[in-house]
Design a binder for these strands. Sequence first.
DNA 1: CCATTAGGTTCCAAATATTGAAACTCAGTT
DNA 2: AACTGAGTTTCAATATTTGGAACCTAATGG
Lengths: 265, 265
Amino acid sequence: MTTPQRETSDGTVGRTLAVLDLVAEFGRPVRFAEILPKAGLPKATLYRFLQTLARQDMLAFDDSRQTYAPGMRLVRLAHSAWAQSSLAPVAQDVMDHLARDIGQTIHLAQLDNGAVLYVDKRNARQPVEMFAQSGKVGPAYCTGVGKAMLAHLPEDRLAQAISRQSFHAHTDRTLTTPAALRDDLARIRERGYALDDEEHEVGIACIAAPILSGNGRVIGAISVTTTTDTTSRDQLLALAGPVKEAAAQIAAAADTWRFPEHKQA
Amino acid sequence: MTTPQRETSDGTVGRTLAVLDLVAEFGRPVRFAEILPKAGLPKATLYRFLQTLARQDMLAFDDSRQTYAPGMRLVRLAHSAWAQSSLAPVAQDVMDHLARDIGQTIHLAQLDNGAVLYVDKRNARQPVEMFAQSGKVGPAYCTGVGKAMLAHLPEDRLAQAISRQSFHAHTDRTLTTPAALRDDLARIRERGYALDDEEHEVGIACIAAPILSGNGRVIGAISVTTTTDTTSRDQLLALAGPVKEAAAQIAAAADTWRFPEHKQA
DNA sequence: CCATTAGGTTCCAAATATTGAAACTCAGTT
DNA sequence: AACTGAGTTTCAATATTTGGAACCTAATGG
């Protein structure tokens, strides 16, 4: 039906998963009473949902503190998701090479509900930061990877994505209107790369390129991040080539990619 | 009702999540027909479950190939889980130090349903392997971290965990009986560290220490992995000190750990 | 020290969503 | 043209979910 209501979610499963999201959003262990008002569910119902999620190990309940936090089953499942549904495994080699070649922090991201979902990363120096970065979400309208992806979205999906942006002025260079953003997106399409010139964080700039599949759909983006005090704008722009090249390689790899055969006894 | 059928799991949510696990276990995109026999559910029911999961972005459905794979929402959620329910954030500094000091691959793991769940890792050299390692599960009976944790489980939970082990002889040194394992666990308790001397993979040895909370419960384990052709047994044993030390530090950090305060406008 | 409240938990009849056998659709075969 | 296998939809029967209200505790405070 054309009921533009919020047909929020389907069935018990949907409602329960919404609660899971809610708990995850807190970013810290939460108590029943903190969730209740935000959930908009009757006490008894929320209670049952939390119980179920906890029994299912989707949430971990801390007896002593009486708090709920996302459970380890999610980590297990996500490993699977990351390994088979993300661009990360396919892009691994390209990421390694690019990281070695230019020695800067690089990110691999995908678009997820209008937001940027980072799926892999290489740090300039440090050993890792793992998951600490993979799985993280960020805004699309003010990051290099975000804009690179938005720029190549078909109009309907773009409109939808834009409507979900919050347009918070993180810095005084942040684009804060759909119009300004659309202008930039047009430029990005022409150049083939996106710039985030301190739009998200002061002192941080990055250059990003979209990863386009054979049929022209955006399937992700890759970016190099630098600090303005160690890297000039020209130096950053000089990276456009390598970044676009890497994006193209990942795209090619993704088109070829077939799942490695598995078999278990 | 008094139909003591298979009350396998709770409600629709439980049954749906079981299907999610099932899909994840395949380790590759799967088609409806492949899932059906393993699910033990009526066609229509399985179909609805998959639909729901896909709509919820817990599964990604590939239109062209008609396959289901774990979805990106899991990656988002897992980030949250990892950041707040795992030992990883607390152990970060200790991991970094240990990695720097001994320059070998180190793992941080937790026990999850009788299996080892790796939650963090530092590679000897390479930039990363990310998620590729975090979220991975492995056997408990033949890995250093696994045995270190089993050794400190209270009897009831140990018995339960042991009953879940598959005791596959990965190498000719693998302990393949509960009795042999229990012997080793006793030794581990005495020494304070566990050894995996090519029990899981030929040419790979590791030394691991349990991470015990203030009240004596195992909350995880940490290990150093080496290859037998670059490191002698004595050299490996010499790492017992640093590993135990690191474990103790993580334990201490975990006991102190309070969640950093958050607030959003 | 009892009264009061706030955070949790349990009940249970009514309302609803789930169930799954069967029928159906849409390729690809034979 | 009839068949087959994979995937999708239907729909009445029925098991599940629902949530208001009662019920437990600790805590809090007067």
